[in-house]
């Protein structure tokens, strides 16, 4: 445990660990899903770009797991690969498989925009190592956001592609809102400034930013049902698709427990 972690009360440290785990799992799982495009993306130029983005996400996940490992005394790989599917805390948005390119663009756009709002807040965190990491991540995520924004507009410019994008967004909105599901004992983190603003505030800010952009492109925002769906299990619901992915990414490590790879 480092100095920063020592100074925190136990309950705050545990809540901070939950927050870090949630963000790290978001990055880890979306990084895994999107790495499936490597080698088979719609164009060679995009193949290289999408690989870079998913590598950045895995890199961010690693940095976050390492930060978490400093709090808990574990090992980053053990946290990333050593849990049962039920113990992952990514938002329900990341429960879905890769699906098609429209689905990938839609999910990534929702995630990148939500993540940008979250990182802007975390860059002001009173937990100095998290504030520094969030600032670093923001620099890379800016490029992801620009790339995804370009894709969103390109696809929205064709009737057939826009319809695919709209269908994916309609399917994803409720689960995308789960990125801002409250983390356990969030009020402790807000009080201590580790999380400078409540998730509910960040959620509103995100919706204010994203909804007009999508509306302007003729793409759907969240329905009233999407907005009122209970958020309590937004980070604990798991699907068969994720259980399949978990089976894949733990396969090698599980073939020889405790070995070094």
């Amino acid at each position: 445990m480092n100095d920063f972690a020592h100074r925190l009360p136990d309950a705050t440290r545990e809540a901070l660990a939950e927050l870090l785990l949630a963000i790290a799992d978001d990055e880890f799982v979306i990084g895994f899903w999107d790495s499936e495009w490597t080698g088979i993306a719609p164009m060679l130029e995009e193949d290289v770009a999408t690989s870079s983005i998913s590598q950045d996400e895995i890199g961010h996940a690693r940095a976050l797991y390492e930060l978490l490992a400093e709090l808990t005394g574990q090992d980053a790989d053990e946290i990333a690969f050593g849990r049962r599917p039920e113990a992952y805390r990514h938002a329900a948005l990341m429960n879905h498989p890769r699906t098609d390119w429209a689905f990938t663009v839609a999910r990534r756009y929702l995630y990148e925009t939500a993540d940008a709002v979250r990182l802007e807040a975390l860059a002001r965190s009173s937990h100095e190592p998290l504030a520094q990491l969030a600032a670093k991540m923001r620099r890379e995520e800016r490029y992801h956001l620009m790339h995804l924004d370009t894709w969103l507009r390109r696809l929205a410019g064709s009737d057939a592609a826009r319809e695919r994008l709209a269908a994916a967004l309609r399917m994803l909105w409720a689960d995308a809102l789960a990125v801002f599901s409250p983390v356990p004992d969030e009020e402790l983190l807000v009080r201590g400034g580790e999380l400078p603003e409540p998730m509910a505030t960040l959620r509103s800010r995100w919706l204010e930013q994203v909804s007009p952009v999508l509306a302007g492109l003729g793409l759907p925002g969240p329905t009233s049902d999407d907005l009122t769906v209970a958020a309590d299990d937004g980070r604990t619901r798991r699907t068969d698709a994720f259980r399949w992915l978990h089976g894949e990414f733990t396969m090698v490590a599980a073939s020889e427990r405790g070995a070094t790879w």
Partner: peptide
């Protein structure tokens, strides 16, 4: 090699393998 991108057993290997396969796509281009 792409078949193993999802199965890479550590964060370090995952990054190295994705980057390697990405290089091959770049070479093809």
């Amino acid at each position: 090699e792409r078949e193993w991108i999802l199965r890479a057993p550590t964060l370090k290997r995952k990054l190295a393998l994705t980057s390697k396969v990405q290089d091959e796509v770049g070479h093809a281009q």
